[in-house]
Simulated scan of single mutants.
Amino acid sequence: MSPADRAALARRAAAAGADVADSRFRTVIDVERKGAKTDVVTQADRDAQTAVVETIADASPDDVIVGEEAETRETVPDRGSAWVIDPIDGTNNYVRGTRTWATAVAAVEDGEAVAAATNLPALEDVYWTDGEATYLNGDSVTVSERTDPEACVVAPTMWWDFDDRGQFERACAAVLERFGDIRRIGCAQAELAAVADGSLDGVVTNVRPHPWDTMAGVSMIRAAGGTVTDLSGDRWRHDSAGLVASNGRIHDAVLAAARDIGPVDADGPA
């Protein structure tokens, strides 16, 4: 399957999941907790994942599927073709009626995303990449050209639960000490897509993120001209420690902010 074909399938699969989730949005739905009080799931998550999986399986039945919900693999293979999916990224936003949530699908080859789509149906925004360029609603987008950290907006992403709330405090302080403003959006894929289109200048966390929260957005940033590393400044991959994303021009400052947060935290939700 060519990169263009993978990108097209990612878009179809993300749209299928987004349509299911959007049909339940702002309706009465049961909310379950997986563990922490902020780690929630709904039947809409499961049904949206089913729609994504079925769309991919119809076109490419032998590929591995990695996903957040049950009945999919949780680790990304280092060899071969795979798909990494998140049926509803930003479920806390979703259940509260906040529009910023997404269905994200990344096509992966030998552990690297080669195409992806992130569909935010409540905002009527669809991002996608074929690995060469990144698009928003059909128009090519690029990372911002800002070079002055004090003119930049950076988002601390993922989540620090109550036992690690001091790290969240340090993350906010590290951003506010260096940059013009801070955002907390509650949907990692939306934050990463915003770096790709230039509406955010950076995203930072010391949490080791799940691949379904990140791989689609990371591929979009890179194709849009940005930089994504781990806390050591090395190229980010799906099993890296922390995540530091930027327009590339302010990356040293974003990396310094990430290192101020503290050592790598455990896996955490967006």
Score class of each variant (00 low, 15 high):
168 F>C: 08
219 S>N: 09
188 A>W: 00
132 E>Q: 11
75 T>S: 09
91 T>L: 00
210 H>L: 15
214 T>E: 03
158 M>H: 05
17 G>C: 04
254 V>S: 10
10 A>S: 14
113 A>T: 09
242 G>F: 13
127 Y>W: 15
250 I>A: 07
120 L>V: 03
110 D>V: 14
66 V>G: 05
231 L>E: 04
176 L>E: 13
261 I>T: 05
195 V>G: 08
128 W>D: 15
151 A>K: 12
116 A>Q: 07
107 A>T: 11
103 T>L: 09
97 G>R: 09
193 A>N: 14
51 A>W: 11
135 Y>P: 00
19 D>R: 13
99 R>F: 11
87 P>A: 05
145 E>A: 14
85 I>F: 06
56 I>T: 06
195 V>I: 11
31 V>Q: 02
166 G>Y: 09
55 T>Y: 04
90 G>S: 13
33 R>W: 05
154 V>M: 08
140 S>F: 01
33 R>Q: 14
137 N>Q: 11
17 G>N: 04
84 V>E: 11
195 V>F: 01
262 G>R: 07
64 V>A: 07
39 D>A: 03
28 V>F: 01
180 G>R: 04
106 A>I: 08
167 Q>W: 12
264 V>P: 07
149 P>K: 03
9 L>D: 13
39 D>Q: 09
6 R>D: 09
26 R>L: 11
41 V>N: 05
88 I>H: 02
21 A>C: 11
226 G>L: 01
132 E>P: 02
7 A>T: 01
172 C>W: 02
32 E>K: 11
65 I>T: 09
260 D>G: 04
10 A>R: 08
122 A>W: 07
68 E>P: 10
255 L>R: 00
224 A>I: 07
160 W>R: 13
195 V>A: 04
128 W>P: 01
261 I>C: 02
164 D>F: 10
238 H>Q: 08
35 G>K: 10
136 L>E: 03
24 R>F: 10
90 G>A: 14
181 D>I: 05
200 L>M: 08
248 G>A: 00
46 R>W: 00
16 A>T: 05
251 H>I: 04
25 F>S: 14
198 G>Q: 02
135 Y>H: 12
65 I>N: 11
250 I>H: 07
266 A>T: 08
155 A>R: 02
141 V>N: 15
119 N>R: 13
1 M>R: 12
40 V>T: 13
63 D>N: 09
162 F>S: 14
154 V>Q: 05
236 W>K: 07
67 G>P: 03
165 R>P: 00
52 V>T: 01
194 A>E: 10
49 Q>P: 06
248 G>D: 00
72 T>A: 06
132 E>F: 01
190 A>V: 14
42 T>H: 12
120 L>M: 12
134 T>P: 01
160 W>N: 15
249 R>F: 08
25 F>M: 13
225 G>D: 12
202 G>I: 09
194 A>S: 15
178 R>W: 05
245 A>M: 06
111 G>Q: 07
177 E>C: 05
98 T>K: 15
130 D>C: 06
15 A>F: 01
233 G>V: 07
268 G>H: 03
231 L>N: 05
